[in-house]
């Protein structure tokens, strides 16, 4: 089958890869690109474990074709930490135990980061609605929501 050559930017770095035209971005990330932080919970847009940003906008990578990455800027969970330096959201999730099995966590973090970039001072309701597309079978959500609100407060104080 004829593969397509895609040139894109992932977490600020230029990248090239080969994919099949019907392949999802999630498959390309986890396959040829070796970025396995994004998870597949459902493959049908329901769980949010595959959340990435596409030109800064939050999307499900399972509902995007890999060929659509051509010329775009992709952001994944691997881009959150700077070297050994965790993103404040990651740090807070660890401190507060806002994860258990961790399968949903990369998607939650990518989604939460996108929220705080758009709205640095969200209400609890706004956080809950924004994260409604990120399903978690373990935590019961409360610690996730608290950790996001607390990180937002820290980041506002630091700004």
């Amino acid at each position: 089958m004829a593969k397509v050559h895609v040139t894109t930017t992932i977490n600020g770095e230029p990248e090239e890869f080969l994919c099949e035209p019907h392949q999802s971005m999630l498959d390309a990330l986890r396959g040829p690109l070796g970025l396995t932080g994004s998870k597949e919970g459902c493959g049908t847009g329901d769980c949010g474990a595959c959340s990435i940003t596409l030109d800064g906008r939050l999307v499900c990578s399972c509902l995007m074709l890999a060929v659509e990455a051509e010329g775009k800027k992709i952001g994944t969970i691997e881009g959150l930490a700077q070297g050994d330096h965790l993103h404040p959201l990651q740090q807070k999730f660890l401190e507060w135990g806002a994860l258990q099995c961790g399968i949903c966590t990369p998607g939650v973090l990518v989604a939460a980061k996108a929220l705080l970039e758009k709205n640095p001072d969200p209400t609890e309701t706004e956080v809950r609605f924004w994260l409604a597309g990120n399903l978690c079978r373990c935590t019961g959500y409360d610690k996730i929501v608290r950790a996001v609100l607390e990180t937002a407060a820290d980041m506002r104080r630091a700004a």
């Binding site: 847009g45 959340s51 596409l54 939050l58 999307v59 499900c60 509902l63 924004w130 409604a132 597309g133």
Partner: peptide, 9 residues
């Protein structure tokens, strides 16, 4: 329509 992720597309 769906979640924030779905609305992004």
């Amino acid at each position: 329509i769906g979640s924030k992720q779905v609305q992004g597309r």
